[in-house]
Design a protein around this nucleic acid. Structure first.
Length: 424
RNA sequence: GGAGAGAUGGCCGAGAGGCUUAAGGCACCGGUUUGCUAAACCGUCGUAGUGGUAUAACUGCUACCGAGGGUUCGAAUCCCUCUCUCUCCGCCA
């Protein structure tokens, strides 16, 4: 959520930013509503001030056993007007709120203008992009080795759900354990294990609501939502809190299953684990001072790269153009891993600086000294990493000609085996 | 699922329609005193919105006692609904 004062003073910039992000919201009514709102506030607060003064006069009269009916009658009229104005104000504020919630975050100046993913800018690349060669795609090889089972996933849950079986399940678990351990021991993160189901306030605070309502699983009976990413419970950990400046940056990492309805996206990238309703992800979240947040963003990307280097997977870092940068984000880097079978890059991580956009809605502040005025901090998050697409890349890259899968060096201590072969 | 108790500033805690602009205490911060620490004393000490100012400092006003409604000239206080926490009972992973 943007600051309404900022919108008021920068209407043209906000409009331009909406266009650069390819968003459709119009803010034509903002100015008018904003002016109306403030004039009503002034009017109603003058009346309230009067009511407060006269009410204490009434109290004095009553105490002295004097007649106050004249004042009381006058205040009845005032109270009625206050009630009327308050109602009018409330409905304007609802309108304004609805407008503001659909205005996207301002882009950082370093974000290139562009319409689609084609306009994204490659920042750097590591490793060689292999050819398909003898390789079977991840579904084929996984079926041969009996480590992934989408048929039974569909039977038990529905299309877009899968089982990991045997060494496949172990490999999956090894991945997220390896990621977590690395972030904790080498990158200065604190581990946090979160609820997977959260309330409406939390979804609103991190910006999933109202825009993404259709993409989430909603338990209507309790009005709770299954998290689409651990970003939600991790960022909301500090909702409505003021942190000490000295403890920033706070870097949290947490594992969660992620649930997405992916409404309307069938047919696109939907084969196997490229797009599923439930997947596993280790999330990175930073709470940062504003002046440090862009430095934090760069560091976060490096933390993700280290994992891919250790797994020896070819990857590239992409700076998203304006049109591809999400609603909440001011600047986003995607990290993509090469898939030799698909012959394309797969997004495995997305690292974003939200600046104070989430912090404002979630009311997360910090202050440097005990008596300082609290100010909004910056929040960042990134996937570090989602396992399902890494699994796709692993099955392809580590495939041997005999149809077995070699376990990457760094995962062997977790797996306690170094090869997956056809066994049953 | 049933019964009961509770929710007041950073924390503790009073307040039960009108000198409450929320008492008092603790903590924090600033100051005085002091050989250091401590103590004592004095003062400051919330959030948000909206005005006055070109901005800031500063300052006026309004709102906020779990949330939302209602009664009233006036609500932390009375009424209704909801949420959460705690205790007990039942049921069940």
């Amino acid at each position: 959520m943007l600051d309404s004062k900022f919108i008021r003073e920068n209407l043209e910039l906000v409009r331009l930013n909406i266009a650069r992000k390819n968003e459709k919201v119009t803010i034509d009514t903002f100015e008018q509503l904003d002016v109306q709102r403030r004039s009503i506030i002034q009017e109603v607060e003058t009346l309230k001030s009067k009511r407060n003064t006269v009410s204490s006069e009434i109290a004095v009269l009553k105490k002295n056993k004097q007649d106050a009916t004249e004042l009381i009658d006058a205040m009845k009229v005032v109270s009625d007007s206050i009630k009327e104005l308050d109602e009018k104000l409330a409905s304007i504020e609802v309108e304004l709120e609805n407008l503001i919630l659909y205005i996207p975050n301002m882009l950082h100046e370093s974000v290139p203008t562009g319409k689609t993913a084609d306009d994204n800018v490659e920042i750097r690349r590591n490793g060689e992009c292999g050819e398909k060669g003898f390789r079977k795609d991840h579904l084929e090889i996984a079926k041969e080795l009996s480590i992934l089972d989408f048929e039974r996933g569909a039977k038990v849950s529905g299309s877009g759900f899968g089982y990991y079986v045997g060494k496949g399940a172990t490999l999956e678990r090894a991945l997220w354990n390896y990621f977590l351990d690395t972030h904790i021991s080498e990158n200065g993160y604190k581990e946090i294990y979160t609820p997977f189901i959260v309330n409406e306030d939390s979804m609103r605070a991190t910006g999933q609501l109202p825009k993404m309502a259709e993409d989430m699983y909603h338990c209507t009976e309790d009005n709770l939502y299954l998290i689409p990413t651990a970003e939600v419970p991790i960022t909301n950990f500090y909702r409505n809190e003021t942190l000490q400046g000295a403890e920033l940056p706070i870097k949290l990492t947490g594992f969660s299953a992620c649930f997405r309805r992916e409404a309307g996206s069938y047919g696109k990238d939907s084969r196997g684990f490229l797009r599923v309703h439930q997947f596993n992800k280790v999330e990175l979240v930073h709470f940062s001072k504003p002046e440090e947040s862009y430095n934090e963003l760069e560091q976060m990307v490096v933390c993700v790269e280290k994992l891919l280097q250790a797994l020896q997977l070819p990857y590239r870092v992409i700076l998203l153009c304006s049109g591809d940068t999400s609603f909440n984000s001011a600047k986003t880097y995607d990290i993509e891993v090469w898939s030799p079978c698909e012959q394309k890059w797969l997004e495995v991580s997305s690292c974003s600086n939200f600046e104070d956009f989430q912090a404002r809605r979630a009311s997360i502040k910090y202050k440097d000294t005990p008596n300082a005025k609290p100010s909004l901090l910056h929040t960042l998050n990134g996937s570090g990493i989602a396992t399902s697409r890494i699994m796709v890349a692993l099955l392809e890259h580590y495939q041997k000609e005999d149809g077995s899968i070699e376990v990457p060096e760094v995962l062997r201590p977790y797996c306690r085996f170094d090869r997956i072969e056809k066994s049953y």
